[in-house]
Simulated scan of single mutants.
Amino acid sequence: MPQPPTPTLTQRRRTPSIALRAGGLVAALTAGALALGACGPAGGSTAAPAGPGTASATVVTTPTPAATAVAPAATPPATTAAPAPSSPATPASTPTPKPTPTLVAGPAIYRTGSTGSTVREVQARLKQLAWYSGDVTDTYGERTTASVRGFQAKRGFPVTGEVDRRTLDKLQAMTRPPTADELANRVPVVTAAAPSTAGLDARCLTGRVLCISKASRSLTWVVDGKALQRFDVRFGSENHPTREGDFTVYRKNRTWTSTLYGSSMPFSMFFSGGEAVHYSSDFAARGYAGASHGCVNVRDYAGLARLFDQVQLGDRVVVS
């Protein structure tokens, strides 16, 4: 039987081996699989594991003679110079905070035991700011000391209970000169015709009462059954109704600003939570076209200023 011709050297070089052909095919498939799986989570492996039941194949590629690179001669490693010692970093200079100046109380002008008409004036001014209650007198006693201490603490002054120049200047700047009625503990005489008590809630006819009626939209200041002042008032909206009941004035503030709405509330007299009787510029401008958030709005600024000076902490408020 004739033997097949032996391939020449040239033919052997042109015929790729089966192993090389298989290795190229597997490499191409693997590269395609990696390209499709390149959207994995950042920081994770991009190589997909073999599927279930599939054996991992080890691919051996035999480089052709032309692809065989000759390794360059080893080059001796360059001598690495030792790093120069670095100078220690200079810390950034931190500015020294300036000490907060500490207020020191000045010499007392009025203190416990002081007497005279000027003490009466101090008490009357404190009363305008609702720091002092009751009748003013010529004697600087425990009540005056407690009032001054509260006033000083509120302003960040040294709390001594004694009136020094700083305390007196601040008190005078925040108040007006007391009237003769205030200094004499008298209720101011109402020049206009006194309002009537007809139709008022029966609870309003005893003691000192801010008698507020939703039916007549009015506030009447009543002392021992006698009506002294009367005001038009406005109430809360349907969503924020003014509470009804028998309350007392527990806080007064001549220049209060609402912490919820940012609106000015001069001559505030609080009687139930955040609800107060106070002057409303909106009520003065728009009348009953608007409403409050529960407070009792008054639009007579001057009249309410007089009422504010008469009302004391603990006076009753009847809303019906």
Score class of each variant (00 low, 15 high):
34 L>M: 08
54 T>E: 10
20 L>V: 08
215 A>E: 04
136 V>S: 11
47 A>N: 09
204 C>H: 08
184 A>Q: 15
74 A>L: 03
8 T>S: 02
88 P>F: 11
230 R>N: 08
179 T>F: 09
314 G>M: 03
251 R>S: 11
238 E>D: 15
144 T>A: 00
200 L>N: 14
61 T>Y: 04
78 A>W: 01
204 C>N: 11
24 G>F: 06
85 P>Q: 14
196 S>M: 08
10 T>N: 15
50 A>T: 12
21 R>S: 03
158 P>C: 12
148 V>R: 12
294 G>N: 05
162 E>S: 01
39 C>R: 05
296 V>R: 00
199 G>P: 13
77 P>N: 09
275 E>R: 07
189 V>K: 12
85 P>R: 04
114 S>R: 05
283 F>Q: 04
299 R>I: 02
139 T>K: 00
130 A>H: 07
154 K>P: 06
25 L>W: 03
290 G>C: 14
163 V>L: 02
46 T>A: 01
143 R>M: 04
223 V>E: 14
108 A>K: 04
204 C>M: 05
6 T>H: 05
64 T>F: 01
58 T>G: 05
246 D>G: 00
56 S>V: 09
88 P>G: 07
126 L>D: 01
289 A>S: 03
119 V>I: 08
181 D>T: 02
186 R>D: 06
35 A>D: 00
300 D>S: 03
48 A>K: 00
258 S>R: 12
216 S>G: 02
49 P>H: 15
163 V>H: 10
211 C>V: 05
159 V>L: 02
151 F>D: 03
37 G>C: 00
55 A>D: 10
248 T>Q: 11
10 T>D: 15
213 S>I: 13
254 R>H: 11
196 S>A: 09
123 Q>V: 14
122 V>E: 06
310 Q>W: 14
316 R>Q: 13
316 R>V: 12
228 L>A: 13
118 T>W: 15
20 L>T: 14
179 T>K: 02
194 A>K: 03
284 A>K: 08
249 V>P: 08
132 Y>K: 10
142 E>A: 13
142 E>G: 15
77 P>F: 13
50 A>Y: 15
75 T>N: 10
34 L>G: 00
62 T>A: 06
9 L>C: 03
277 V>K: 12
149 R>T: 07
253 N>K: 12
218 S>C: 06
309 D>A: 09
302 A>L: 00
247 F>A: 05
248 T>F: 15
147 S>M: 09
222 V>L: 02
53 G>P: 08
14 R>H: 12
182 E>G: 10
298 V>I: 06
158 P>E: 00
18 I>Y: 14
209 V>K: 07
140 Y>M: 05
207 G>R: 02
291 A>N: 10
46 T>W: 06
166 R>C: 14
211 C>F: 08
232 D>W: 03
70 V>F: 07
235 F>H: 09
278 H>D: 12
241 P>Y: 15
167 T>Q: 06
247 F>T: 02
79 T>H: 05
120 R>A: 13
127 K>G: 02
95 P>Y: 03
241 P>S: 02
220 T>M: 08
243 R>H: 10
163 V>S: 11
78 A>S: 04
312 Q>K: 07
60 V>K: 07
140 Y>A: 06
51 G>P: 14
49 P>E: 06
186 R>H: 11
250 Y>P: 08
37 G>M: 00
281 S>N: 07
46 T>H: 04
35 A>W: 00
100 T>L: 01
182 E>N: 09
117 S>V: 09
43 G>M: 15
157 F>S: 06
27 A>N: 10
